[in-house]
Design a protein around this nucleic acid. Structure first.
Lengths: 165, 165
DNA sequence: CGTCGATGTTAACATCGATAACATGCTAAT
DNA sequence: ATTAGCATGTTATCGATGTTAACATCGACG
């Protein structure tokens, strides 16, 4: 009995060591871990590359663990989208001229295409919807002096789709 | 032997009858059948609702049959996107005033959100890429006198995402 | 009439989202 | 300090999907 318990512990340790992770049963801050993994995947390999299971693997937990923090994939996507708006708003707050606003906006879309696509695509997650609309409103207000959000978004969107003319 | 053959035929007939399909082994024009099924799915239940298997079921063939006509799902999506551009261009050719152009464009996006999303989203299919760019160029030319494609696309895109301000 | 290529079918594999049942360990009341 | 309970992880499982391979059928062309 004791021996079995001990072996179980050692197996856990070994497996954790092989993955270069810490040895504790609990992750510590899995929600953040998952979001970082999700953002990395989206930024590097695109939105379609984000799967719940891959995010879990990258965070070093079992493939079902994420469901303790996000009800489903849509909710994770929603959280990443929110994070994206905050990043973009922060970028924009650092500049002021109309030209700089436009350039910063387009640069964000070009640098984080997957995230941008996510932010402005249809999103299943109802939980983040109101927060999202609020952030977009902030964005629209900020871009008022740069010709408005819609034209700029159209430009960014066409570029990302490889359809800019 | 003969009996077995005969039974096999009768089973095929019965199953076909149950599905209200014709009895022939070959479909006739599966490529079109698949595209119609795909468009229906995309228009009614959104882009994510289109799966190769569901399109096959709706076309009344086995779930692997589509691969005789489309190398993969991306290629089917690409074909639907092309069809969408042609529809939109046809709509736009029927009007001429700047106001009507804008309204027709936005109405198309509102009426066929899934298809619109598909047309202007990132598409994996390389085969349709050049054709696609060409059609978008036509579109852009046509919208030149209505303020340009990008602003209008931005507006349509934000509306579809439920983010219009 | 026979064969060959286009088109369908069945069966299989790997992966995914999601859930249920079970395990572990932090925390707070005693 | 002990321990009960809740938050968080794990394993096992289900049904669906994309895709491929191997086999079947049919129509067109010699």
């Amino acid at each position: 009995m004791l021996i079995i318990e001990t072996n179980r512990e050692r197996v856990t340790e070994m497996r954790a060591k092989l993955r270069g992770q810490k040895t504790s049963y609990h992750h510590g801050d899995l929600r953040h871990g998952l979001m970082e993994a999700a953002m990395t995947l989206i930024d590097i390999r695109g939105r379609h590359a984000l799967t719940m299971r891959e995010a879990a693997r990258r965070a070093g937990v079992s493939e079902a663990a994420p469901y303790r923090h996000f009800a489903n994939l849509d909710e994770l996507l929603g959280a990443v989208a929110i994070e994206g708006y905050e990043m973009l708003l922060a970028d924009l707050e650092a500049v002021s001229s109309m030209k700089a606003l436009r350039e910063t906006y387009l640069a964000f879309a070009a640098d984080f295409p997957g995230r941008y696509e996510l932010m402005f695509g249809k999103l299943g997650d109802r939980k983040s919807a109101t927060r999202r609309k609020h952030l977009v409103q902030e964005l629209a207000d900020m871009m008022e002096k740069a010709g408005g959000l819609a034209p700029l978004h159209g430009e960014a969107s066409l570029r990302l789709a490889g359809l800019a003319v």
